[in-house]
Amino acid sequence: MIQDTIKHHLTDALLMAYSAGTLPEAFSLAVAAHISMCDECRARLGAFDTVGGTLMENCDAAVMSADSLDATLAMIDLAEARPAERDVPLGGGVLPAPVRAYVGGDLDSVRWRPVGMGVKQAILPTKGDATARLLYIPAGAAVPDHGHKGTELTLVIRGAFEDKVDHFGPGDIEVANEDLDHTPIADIGEDCICLAATDAPLRFNSWLPRIAQPFLRI
């Protein structure tokens, strides 16, 4: 599933916040999904994790309670007495593994809801201020023109789309902020599947979607 044609990568700010563990869950999901498809950003994340390790190792150490080591060893012994739980491997698929974990399966398990003009979405259950959704955009169709109050991350999982910024293919991630009003249009050749994460509701620029917004939770 690794793509070597990726042109649009994660920003330093996103990678650092993911490494530090300060992103909302929905953004972490988009970051993890992109890294699943992109070796370059995986390597960059390794560097940010190393910064974290260095800072932790060199910080002023705290004092442990007197029985801390014994308590930890007891915890280890207790866990070893229980039968080991094995993670069931999810196997390959269209969706990157972190997304499959939220869907509870691959593409055929997604519970799509129509949002009009052939576009479908499925909201994924994440906690915190940001929301994550899968978008299904039929070949050649457009997502209604919208702006953002906050940040929107859009990762192409399959197919491609184009907006006024650029062309985005599989593995590409678009980082859009409040300055960008855009109308992503799916390529004509193939239906487009994206993972989108936003930390504020999208702001649609035409009258109808704005009415529909509270109902559709876009």
Binding site: M1, A32, A101, K127
Partner: peptide
């Protein structure tokens, strides 16, 4: 933070 931590697919 009481959140899940999505991890990248392992190589």
């Amino acid at each position: 933070r009481k959140m899940k931590r999505p991890e990248p697919e392992d190589l």
